[in-house]
């Protein structure tokens, strides 16, 4: 596989990741979100493997494997169990103002491209064109957390941000050292567990996972 072909494949995968990130931003159904998230993990895993092959960084294969196991199988499974337990699988969440959210998302992507243009000129890596996408994915994940009301969707937003970060690491510096990646993977797993337990308890205590309820915690004048 030649370098240019690898770069082409990598760009396609980056486009797909960006597409799933937009999908996450506007998808109303929770299962839909879960599937999109799993797809994003899959694309990320393949992209990592491709980069690892081209750059001859063999530890990236392990990263790719971890991503595959964790973000395509384990985390969606945990979230699935959570959704079943909490009986929220039928619920369709209202997303505030889809068109405006989309416009902001597009603006963020353009912003990311303009922001990373100096790096693109300096970098010699195959993956230099995808740094902008990685940054955009992080920002879109944050935007998703802002626009969503349901706690579970906020976790998915958070995990999608982490995907973006991981992607940025692979595309900017061919991945982080393996120890760091293992650590981050473990953190994500534990975070998902903790969120799960936490939400389960919140739900049983308050009968709702709507974060709007927290507005009542505000200080009175």
């Amino acid at each position: 596989m030649s370098i240019s072909l690898a770069a082409q494949i990598n760009s396609i995968l980056a486009a797909l990741i960006l597409l799933t990130a937009f999908g996450l931003l506007v998808q109303r159904r929770i299962y839909g979100l879960l599937h999109l998230f799993a797809w994003q993990g899959l694309f990320l895993s393949i992209s990592t493997a491709v980069v690892g092959f081209v750059a001859e960084k063999h530890h990236l294969y392990i990263s790719s494997l971890i991503t595959l196991v964790l973000k395509v199988i384990v985390l969606p499974y945990i979230l699935h169990v959570l959704i079943m337990r909490l009986k929220i699988h039928r619920e369709i969440e209202t997303v505030v103002n889809v068109p405006i959210t989309m416009l902001i998302g597009i603006a963020l992507v353009i912003f990311s491209y303009s922001l990373t243009s100096p790096i693109r000129e300096l970098s010699t890596h195959v993956t230099k064109s995808t740094i902008a996408v990685a940054l955009a994915t992080v920002l879109l994940g944050l935007l998703m957390m802002i626009t969503r009301r349901h706690a579970v969707t906020q976790i998915i937003g958070f995990l999608s941000m982490e995907n973006g970060l991981f992607f940025a690491a692979t595309s900017a510096t061919y991945g982080m050292p393996l120890v760091v990646e293992l650590g981050v993977g473990l953190d994500i797993l534990i975070a998902a567990f903790i969120f799960g337990i936490f939400f389960f308890h919140i739900n049983t205590a308050f009968d709702s996972l709507d974060v709007e309820q927290m507005a009542r915690l505000k200080e009175e004048d």
Partner: peptide, 27 residues
């Protein structure tokens, strides 16, 4: 005290805007 809206989305917007502004200013 007005910063304290009680809504998690608002709290997320604060760092979001901060990040964007810092990225714009310090690019």
């Amino acid at each position: 005290g007005r910063l304290q809206q009680g809504r998690i989305q608002m709290y997320l917007i604060y760092p979001f805007i901060t990040i964007i502004v810092l990225l714009v200013l310090l690019r």
